[in-house]
Write a protein that binds this DNA or RNA. Structure first.
Lengths: 205, 205
DNA sequence: CAGGTAGGCGTACTGTGTACACTTACCAAG
DNA sequence: CTTGGTAAGTGTACACAGTACGCCTACCTG
């Protein structure tokens, strides 16, 4: 009987993602999203409980772009690396969403399924019980931390330029390390750190 | 000639920290801090550029509680662990500040000095060049990620209860891992993960 | 064609950060 | 002790946020 819905949550999520990509985290407002959907701000509330749910939709939309199925071939290290890379790539495609991703981490169904897959691989690798718990925690910790190191810094003040301004007399190690890191590039830095973590995990077997 | 200042930045930082500890991240408003200092909101602007600087002061205040001097005895692993624990403990004492800490990470003088100290220890351990850069990045990544896993979740919806609601049929590994993790406790989980990371770092030598 | 259901909107309220102009307290000089 | 200048502190007001409330309206079913 009633009037049919003209939107669905996915459309809203897409619009909100476009807004945040274009105008940054602070630009994600109810009014801006409604505007992009050619609706009044209040119309949005028919589809979304509040701003918090809107943000949750955006996060889920971003994480949906990651493949959370473990590849069937390769060593367990390769498979974990693949899974880690998937999340990293998905989030990296939308740097402005990073701050949101972090807050929603523990409630996100997508990340839950991802964790389940990772645990499966770790189990096949021979990890059980507390050791497996610590390994997952370790990988998740590195993933989240690394994503931030990559993106949260560059959103404002530009992290690299900030490091370039380090006086090499006050911070001798740090300034030379910053140069090393810049030569490496973000991808290799992430991969290198992950390889270290995985060696540590493997040592526990 | 002029009227003397009645406050300094440290007093403001202390007041702001008290406000955020008592009323959570959203409670940290210019008005609330001014109120606690028995001043008008606008008076605060004589001491602080804007809200962003206020938040920065809070972060620095929290990080100041961490000892950033490396202990002189023990293995390099022990010394790095000590340094990691210091930051973790400082931030853990003020869970509501966690979201701010993350954003300010790359500009924080305290964290810069901390990184410098860690790099010194890593250098003594025999790490140089890109490998040292990756190791620092790896440790920083784990530190930041782990702090979040501990605190950002529990701020809302209570992370453990969320995990308890996992259907063990849909998430068999995850639900059993959640049980393992709960038995472990946050501290041991952090320490265990760090030990894994350090083993990985050591393997690179 | 009629009527009810639910979609969409207009208005308005509270609370935020903060610009601007004002008042006031202090200190040095006469 | 007066007096004036400098900067501290305040009051008011605005733009913009999220969102509660109630109205109008488009659609589908009978």
């Amino acid at each position: 009987m009633p009037r049919p819905r003209s939107l669905d949550k996915d459309t809203i999520a897409t619009a909100a993602l476009a807004v945040i990509d274009a105008h940054g985290p602070a630009g994600l407002t109810m009014r801006a999203v409604a505007n992009r959907l050619a609706m009044s701000p209040m119309a949005l509330y028919r589809y979304v409980e509040d701003r918090y749910e809107l943000e949750t939709l955006v996060v889920e939309k971003v994480l949906a772009e990651a493949d959370i199925e473990a590849p069937s071939h390769g060593s367990w290290q390769d498979r974990v690396t693949y899974l880690m890379e998937q999340v990293r790539a998905a989030v990296s495609a939308h740097p402005a969403v990073v701050p949101l991703t972090l807050t929603r981490r523990h409630t996100s169904p997508a990340l839950r399924r991802w964790s389940e897959t990772v645990l499966g691989v770790l189990t096949e690798a021979g990890l059980e019980g507390p050791r497996r718990a610590v390994a997952l925690r370790c990988l998740l910790g590195y993933l989240i931390g690394a994503i931030q190191l990559d993106h949260l810094g560059s959103l404002e003040g530009h992290g690299t330029s900030a490091l370039a301004g380090l006086s090499s007399s006050e911070f001798p190690y740090l300034s030379s390390t910053a140069r090393d890191a810049r030569r490496l590039g973000a991808e290799e830095e992430f991969a290198g750190g992950l390889a270290m973590v995985l060696r540590g995990v493997a040592d526990g077997l």
